[in-house]
Computed example of a mutant assay.
Amino acid sequence: MTNSTLAYYNQNAKCFSDSTLNVDMSALYAEFLPLITPQGHILDAGCGSARDAAYFKQQGFIVSAFDASEQLAALASDHLQQPVEVKTFQQLADKNHYDGIWCCASLLHIPKNELPQTFLKLQNALKPNGILYVSFKYGRQERLHNGRKFTDLNESGLRALVNKYKQMQLVKYWQSVDQRPGRESEVWLNALIKKETAL
């Protein structure tokens, strides 16, 4: 994440958190959660407001969460009622630790040339047969918008990324529209990726 992107989230943490807390994510939960071991451990990576982590916790899952923004992590800790770490994807060093990792609208701030290394860290952090959910704004460019840097992905870009890793298997990918009011014209690429057992 660039300094300007991080500064945006620190400066607008409360507004951003408030704007996302009540978004209906049930359709995405319905794709992800049935694939996770009951009472399994889920990492909400780049958790923002911790809206999703809090839902997973309510469903009986063990939850961990982190965000690169110190201000967002503080708000997320309050909402989740447990500590949320301040760290980046580059600092993720867990090995075979999580049954599921949830990267909802968080990897899109990773520069494109850093995505392969980030996916390797996510693969390593998952247990065998663990599930990774990712979402990107639909497209194929890197762009700057309102002070934030975005990396957009389409299906071919996603497949090329996942295919770099023998243990990563693309289970499903699909497009969806943004659920926030007034953002219905924005399209997202969603994907579920499984970590296969060691070859």
Results as ranks from 00 to 15, higher is better:
99 D>A: 10
11 Q>D: 14
72 L>M: 05
28 L>R: 04
156 S>F: 10
119 F>C: 15
56 F>N: 00
72 L>Y: 02
67 D>A: 05
78 D>L: 13
194 K>C: 05
130 G>P: 07
182 G>I: 04
195 K>Y: 00
195 K>D: 01
85 E>V: 12
3 N>A: 14
46 G>C: 01
161 L>F: 07
18 D>Y: 00
165 Y>P: 02
150 F>R: 04
109 H>V: 13
127 K>R: 06
10 N>Y: 07
134 V>H: 08
97 H>Y: 10
193 I>T: 06
163 N>S: 10
196 E>C: 09
20 T>A: 04
136 F>K: 03
185 S>R: 11
179 Q>D: 08
19 S>R: 09
47 C>H: 01
64 S>L: 00
83 P>E: 13
67 D>C: 04
35 L>V: 07
58 Q>A: 14
154 N>V: 04
94 D>H: 14
18 D>L: 06
51 R>F: 05
87 K>T: 09
82 Q>W: 12
154 N>Q: 07
171 V>G: 02
43 L>V: 07
57 K>Q: 12
180 R>Y: 04
141 Q>I: 12
98 Y>G: 06
37 T>D: 03
185 S>Y: 11
43 L>C: 06
122 L>T: 08
181 P>R: 04
186 E>D: 11
132 L>D: 08
59 Q>D: 01
145 H>I: 15
28 L>G: 01
168 M>Q: 07
35 L>D: 00
21 L>G: 00
183 R>G: 05
145 H>C: 13
188 W>L: 01
140 R>Y: 13
45 A>C: 02
87 K>H: 09
8 Y>Q: 04
141 Q>V: 14
50 A>I: 00
190 N>H: 13
77 S>P: 10
168 M>Y: 05
80 L>F: 10
46 G>T: 01
59 Q>W: 03
73 A>L: 09
124 N>W: 07
131 I>M: 14
22 N>W: 03
115 L>H: 08
137 K>N: 08
17 S>C: 06
3 N>F: 12
142 E>M: 14
194 K>I: 02
110 I>R: 03
24 D>L: 03
162 V>C: 04
80 L>I: 12
198 A>Y: 14
81 Q>C: 15
175 Q>I: 08
119 F>Y: 15
181 P>M: 08
122 L>W: 09
56 F>S: 00
65 A>E: 02
61 F>V: 05
169 Q>Y: 10
96 N>K: 11
144 L>F: 13
30 A>N: 07
55 Y>L: 02
178 D>N: 09
113 N>V: 13
80 L>K: 09
102 W>K: 10
116 P>E: 13
91 Q>W: 13
120 L>H: 15
166 K>N: 11
